[in-house]
Computed example of a mutant assay.
Amino acid sequence: MIIAAVRLYREGLADVLHGRGTINVVGTADSGDAGVACVQRTRPDLVLVDTATPGGLDVLRSLRTTAPQVRTVALGVVESGPDVLACVEAGAAGYVPREASLEDLVATLERAGRGEATCPPEILAELLRRVTELAGGSTFALSGSDLLTSRELQIVQLIANGLTNQEIAERLAVALSTVKNHIHNIFAKLQISGRAEVAAWVRRQSAV
């Protein structure tokens, strides 16, 4: 099953994928709510979620809650640690980067269907670091009880990597004003006032 907001894209993917390898497309939907209803009706083994769909991560989370037996694959993911990590934490069993070919997409879907996953070494290292943090009780805790959201963690890492607000907006495919709002919240939660302090905070967390 495929969830994507753009009808032409959604139906084109369904036509191309149906019957390729072991894939049988049983339905499509244009939103998270429609997707959940379609999953309940068609009971697919896999759901391909276009991350460009509004609230793409929320769609993954919703499916994890309402249909935990269904494996989800995130489509069109920026292949960076924070972006992949956000999808995995939202419930994705696999991901397809923006630069992937049709053959890559088919292979990822078939691997996910078998309960397998592959990723580049640098992404694997990021995932393992996150698992280690969770296992050790270190979950990017801040002063007080607040925690950064997955999106805020993405932006924190991108700031630490030296990206400007405009570059972050382009990377995440969101409005510049949205990035500024997130950064305002990050500064408030971390009780800091500058980008250099964000980078220093990331280094401290990485050293834990």
Rank of each mutant, 00 (worst) to 15 (best):
V36D: 01
E103G: 08
V88M: 10
G94H: 09
D104K: 11
L63A: 03
V96Q: 02
A90T: 14
G21S: 08
P68G: 10
D15T: 12
L128K: 09
A125D: 12
Q40K: 10
D104N: 07
R64K: 10
V59R: 02
E89W: 13
V77D: 00
V25S: 05
R61W: 12
L8N: 12
G21L: 12
A5C: 00
D50E: 10
L46K: 10
C87T: 15
E11A: 10
V70Q: 01
C119P: 02
P68R: 13
L124V: 00
H18P: 07
E116N: 07
S62K: 05
Q40A: 07
R129E: 12
T118Y: 07
A86Q: 01
I23F: 08
A14T: 08
G12P: 03
V78Q: 13
V88N: 00
D33W: 06
Y95W: 11
E103H: 09
A29F: 11
G32D: 13
E103L: 12
A34P: 00
D15C: 09
G115L: 15
L60A: 06
R71L: 08
E99Y: 09
L8G: 10
G35E: 11
A14P: 02
P54H: 04
L128C: 00
A14Q: 13
G76D: 02
V49F: 04
L13E: 09
T66Q: 09
A29E: 13
R41G: 01
V25W: 00
D33A: 08
A92K: 09
V78M: 14
L109H: 03
V39C: 14
L13W: 05
G76A: 03
T51G: 02
L60I: 15
G35Y: 11
H18K: 07
V96S: 00
V49P: 15
